[in-house]
Design a protein around this nucleic acid. Sequence first.
DNA 1: TTGTACGCGTTATCAT
DNA 2: ATGATAACGCGTACAA
Lengths: 322, 322
Amino acid sequence: MVSIKDIAKQAGVAISTVSYALNGSPKVTEETAAKILAVAKELNYVPNANARHLKKRETKIIGAFLTDFSGSFYGDLLQGMKEGVNRSGYDLVICSGQQAHRLLPQRFIDGAIVLDETFSSEELLKYADLGHKLVVLDRELSHPNINQVLLDNKAGATLAAEYLIEMGHRKLYVVTGPKGSFDSRQRMQAVKQTIDRTPGIEYIEIEGDFNKSAGALAGLQIVKEYTGPAAVFCLNDEMAIGMYDYLSTTKIRVGKDIHIIGFDNIEVSHYTQPRLATIDYSKRKWGVLASEQLLKLIRGDEVEHERIYVSLVRGESVGPTG
Amino acid sequence: MVSIKDIAKQAGVAISTVSYALNGSPKVTEETAAKILAVAKELNYVPNANARHLKKRETKIIGAFLTDFSGSFYGDLLQGMKEGVNRSGYDLVICSGQQAHRLLPQRFIDGAIVLDETFSSEELLKYADLGHKLVVLDRELSHPNINQVLLDNKAGATLAAEYLIEMGHRKLYVVTGPKGSFDSRQRMQAVKQTIDRTPGIEYIEIEGDFNKSAGALAGLQIVKEYTGPAAVFCLNDEMAIGMYDYLSTTKIRVGKDIHIIGFDNIEVSHYTQPRLATIDYSKRKWGVLASEQLLKLIRGDEVEHERIYVSLVRGESVGPTG
DNA sequence: TTGTACGCGTTATCAT
DNA sequence: ATGATAACGCGTACAA
C-alpha cells in the first residue's frame, strides 16, 4: 500500500507537506501541491481511512440498525436516510443483528439510527452515556445524546378505527404487534380511546407480532368464531397481507364478510385484491428527518423530538356493513 | 474515551500486558488477566476499532454494494450474506451509491460483494488490482482477486421460453433489462437460442430497464398493436408487475389475452391476480455462497466461480393459447 | 512482564 | 512565507 511517506519520497518533499497538499491547505505553493497531486495519482495513492479516523476521531459514516433486511418496508426509508446524510458529506451503512452493534461503541460510525425492537433500550442508553449519538425511530428515550423521530401512531390508529366505525362496523378486532413494541402499544391505546367514545362497539384483541404468519393465525381465529360481518384493524400491513393469504383459502370474502385495514401502506398492499385500506406516511421523509436530526446531534446543535404525520388510505378491503 | 493506557495505569501494569490480557493471550497470568479485565469493565473500556484496524490491517467487516434499497428483492439475499459472514466472525454492512465506494479502497471493509450495475467494471478491476477482494453477482470479470457467483440465467430463460412455447404460444414478446445488464443479455441470448430451435415463432423485443415503469410502457405498446393472444417474457418480475398495473386499466386480461412470465420470484409476485409465472431460485443461498466465496478469497484459498440454479414456477398468468 | 517500534495521517511548533 | 520535524491518536507484537 502506498502511503503519504511514499509520495513524500517520490516528490522530494516532507510528509507534512504532502498531507497539507492533499487536504488543499493554503500552506503549500500551488506548484508544489500540483506536483504532489500528480505523484499521488501516479502511485495510485488512497488514504487509509483508519489512520485518518484514528487521528480525527470521526469517520463520517452513519449506521442504520434494522431488525432484518426483509420486506419491502425499508426501501424508501433508507433512501431518505441516505439522501439526508450524503447531503452533509456522510455515508450511510445498513447493519442488522446483535453482532453489528459493536460498530457504534468501537467508533466505526459517528452515530446510529435505530429501528430495531431487538436493540434493547438499556444498551442504547449505555452507548448514549458513553457519548455516542443516536436517533431512535421505534421508542421513547430521554437522553441528551438521543433524539426521537416517531410516527404519529395515535393519529393513524384513530383514523383507522374511526374509518371502520364510520363504515358502520360494530364488531372490531385488533391484531396487535409484539408485546414489547412501542408502535403497537400506542396504536392500541388510540383504538381503545376511539372505541370508548363510541357506544356499542364490540372489541376483541388478538395478539400478533407484525409478521405475516400472525395475520394468518388471526384470520383463522376470526373465521372460526365467525357469526356475521366483522372489521379488523391489523396493526401493520404485513399482518393484513397474512390474513388475506389465509382468507383466500376460505370462502370468506375481504371487503364483504370481513373488513380489513392495515398500517404502513407497504408496496405489496397496492397489489392486493381488493386494495387494502391502510395508514400512509412518507417513509422517505422519515428517513431524511431522522438523518438530519442525527447530524444535528453530532454537530452539537439543539434538537427537539420530531413526529411523522400520517394519513388514511381508503380501499375496497373495507366496505359498508353487509 | 478510556484507552488501554488508562487501564494499564489503573491496574499498575504495562500497556502491552493489558493488550495481551484483553486478547486472551497465554502470556499473562490468570490472576493479572482477571484483574485487568475487571479494571477494563469498571472503566467501561471499549477498544477503538480504528486503532486496531490500523495495526492489523483488517476490519472483519464485509460490504455489500447495491444499486438502491428499494423493492422486496434483496431481503433474503442479504440475510444469506449476513449468515455467511457472521459464521466466520465477520460483520456485514450494506452500502449504496457512488459515494460509498470509498469504503473499499480506504480499507474500511475487508472486501465487497457487488450487485450494482452502476458500479463500473473498470472501477472494480482497479480495486482488484490494488489488492482488494471482490465477489460480483452481476457480471463476468476475470481477475485473481475477483470471484463470480452468478445466476444460471440461461437455464432460467430457457425454462421460461420453453414454457410459453409449450403452452402453445407463437407470438413472443421479450421485455429486456437495461442495455448494460449482464443478466438481461444472458437471458435474451437463451431466449433466442430456444426460439431458433422452434420454427414458426414470432419474436418481438421491447427494451426495458428492470423497473416497473418499463413494464407498464411495454404493456402499452403490446396493447396498441394487439391482434390476438400474445405471450410476454418480462426479464424480471418487477417489470411484469408494472405490466399487470397497466393492463388492469384496460380490458385485456392476463392469462387469457396476454400471457406473462417473469424472472426472480419476488414476494409481490405471490399476491398478483392471477399468480405470476416466474423463474425461482434461492436468494438466501445466493447470499450465503457469495459471502463464503469472498471469505475464501480473503483467506487466500482457492476459489472457482459459482452458479446458482433456478427452477420454473408455473402460474395462471400463462394459460393455453386462447 | 515490560519497553518500544510500528501502522498512517494530522497538525502544532519550530527553522529557514 | 514555506516547509520540515515531531508528537499524537490507540492498539499490536517483537525483543528484551
